[in-house]
Design a protein around this nucleic acid. Structure first.
Length: 507
RNA sequence: GCGGCUGUAGCUCAGUAGGUUAGAGCGCUGGCUUGUGGCGCCAGAGGUCGAUGGUUCAACUCCUUCCAGCCGUACCA
């Protein structure tokens, strides 16, 4: 620091001399949830849970932290975890990470308890997962997933069941048939397609990845966008260039033809065994869902489904919402995928050495909740605010009397609270009750107490009356929607006002 | 990561061709009013003008760098 010369700027700073206050904030991509959100979420999750239970799945819970190797998230050639996971070094020098999905921990749980668990092992679980990625609208670094999996079931019938359960869950949540669709594909088909255009084999790993990424962008950029990404590359709106997979025109045409039509076993049977196997599995899934009475408006085979995770080995499926929604900016967009999954036959084997087939899917609870809000299928705040018993007198007898009133109401099953703020200004108490959304306020001063009475104020009715009163003095003097009753009638009066309000709300 | 846009009060935003003391609405606090919500009246608190470095007699204003946010794009195991 320079000593004696004081610039004007420094002088200004000295003058301010403000203590640097701590800024209240969450880490980027992490959010607080309010009570409306929590209640709506719980209602939604209980609906999902009831569907899974009906299918015969049982809950299981695993911790949020796992050893990083159990998640399979060490970077190749280093002993550091992948950047995408939140990781820390335990005091015994072992890396542990916050789970980034619920599937890898389930595989670990199963492998660890393999001798005690009966197969097929059918479980569900909900929990927060964490991803250290750039957050965006509707994308957070901590979010809730709700998974169901069947471990030890090799047949496509297990995959078909997952698709049906997805469809049933959507409908149980109030999403109409036609507003969602479960799309099914098979990794083997995509592998076969890539083999057919001559990019099979280990040396083409990168190119295959590029092709899959390009296909995955179909709903975002359309067929022409995907064509560019399969070829040389694509320029985005900001002028930034994305390098493509480098296929030539014939290769790109073949891929596009395969992903945009129904897979045809006859036409492609001579191509290769991977495609044949994949197509046969899809045909079997189709037969099963048809046979169970699910139509193509609910579940359909769609060769453009890719899914990001690379541990999938067979059928992959995702549930997409198809109705248009209007976002905050008034633009009409389609919501896209809210759930996805697939078969992961290799995941348990990492622990056990035995081949253990498994399939399952995951619902993005937060995303789906946003969608349900858009559909108006999410009841906002069904919980009534408490009755507020005001504090007029602060002597012990009076206070005990208020507490007795509150208790009587609670015993009758009515949410109630005594005003716990500074009771000095009575107006503040009613203001508190008003802003809290309370249906009723209870008032008892010394006059009422001596007469064995209480004042019961209907805040909802009072709000309506306020619109006819423009003068502040008159509004106060008139004591709108307020009645004097016998103290003994407190609970019954409150009950009848509440039920009248209830009738009016539902009218 | 790359590209673009934006950072002024708790929120939404004015403002300055560089010039004394940075404003409004809403919100908040207190009072009118220890016996009445809304409407009203009076008063008040609240600002490192995102951070840093520079140009200048003088920077909220111009320039550098950084940070954060938004949009697009990539990555998303």
């Amino acid at each position: 620091m320079s000593q004696n010369i004081e610039t004007p700027k420094q002088a200004k700073k000295q003058k301010k001399k403000k203590p640097q206050r701590l800024k209240a904030r969450q880490p980027r991509g992490f959010v607080d949830r309010d009570s409306d959100d929590i209640r709506a979420g719980e209602q939604m999750m209980s609906t999902i849970r009831s569907v899974y239970e009906r299918y015969g799945f049982d809950p299981v819970e695993t911790p949020m932290f796992e050893y990083t190797d159990a998640l399979g998230k060490f970077l190749p050639d280093t002993d550091r975890p992948n950047e995408g996971v939140f990781s820390l070094l335990d005091d015994d020098e072992q890396w542990m990470s916050l789970r980034y999905d619920l599937t890898a921990p389930l595989a670990r749980h199963f492998a660890q308890n393999i001798n005690d668990l009966q197969t097929p092992y059918r479980t569900y679980r909900a929990g927060y997962v964490f991803r250290n990625e750039k957050p965006g609208p509707g994308r957070f670094r901590q979010f809730m997933q709700f998974d169901a999996d069947t471990v030890g079931a090799p047949n496509p019938s297990a995959d078909a069941e997952m698709c049906m359960m997805m469809a049933d869950t959507m409908e149980a949540l109030g999403i109409a048939r036609g507003d969602y669709v479960v799309r099914v594909n098979n990794r083997k088909v995509l592998d076969g397609v890539m083999e057919a255009i001559g990019i099979g084999g280990d040396e083409n790993d990168d190119r295959r990845l590029g092709v899959l990424r390009a296909i995955d962008k179909l709903d975002k950029f359309g067929i022409e966008g995907v064509r560019l990404l399969l070829g040389d590359g694509r320029m985005d709106d900001s002028g930034d260039f994305t390098k493509g997979a480098g296929l030539d025109k014939d290769q790109a045409d073949f891929v596009l033809a395969q992903i945009s039509g129904e897979p045809n076993a006859d036409a492609t049977s001579q191509l290769n065994s991977a495609m044949q196997a994949g197509i046969a599995e899809l045909a079997q899934i189709k037969d099963l869902i048809d046979g169970a009475g699910y139509g193509p408006d609910q579940i359909k085979i769609d060769p453009s489904v890719v899914r990001g995770l690379e541990y999938y080995t067979g059928p992959v499926y995702e549930c997409e919402l198809t109705f248009p929604v209007t976002n905050e900016k008034g633009e009409t967009v389609t919501f896209g995928s809210v759930a996805g999954g697939g078969r992961y036959d290799g995941l348990v084997k990492r622990f056990t050495g035995q081949d253990i087939p498994a399939t399952g899917f995951s619902i993005g609870v937060s995303r789906l909740m946003t969608a349900l809000k858009n559909l108006g299928k999410l009841q906002a705040n069904t919980v009534l605010a408490p009755v507020v018993v005001c504090v007029m007198d602060r002597d012990n007898d009076a206070l005990a009397g208020y507490q007795r009133m509150v208790q009587e109401l609670r015993v009758a099953g009515i949410r109630a609270e005594m005003y716990q703020g500074n009771p000095k200004q009575f107006g503040k108490q009613l203001q508190y009750a008003d802003r809290r959304g309370s249906p009723i306020a209870i008032i008892q001063g010394s006059d009422e107490r001596e007469a064995g009475e209480v004042q019961v104020k209907d805040l909802v009715e009072g709000m309506r009356l306020s619109q006819q009163i423009s003068d502040n003095e008159e509004w106060r003097a008139s004591r709108p929607a307020q009645q004097t009753i016998k103290r003994a009638d407190l609970v019954s009066t409150v009950q009848s006002i509440l039920s009248a309000q209830e009738t009016e709300r539902s009218a």
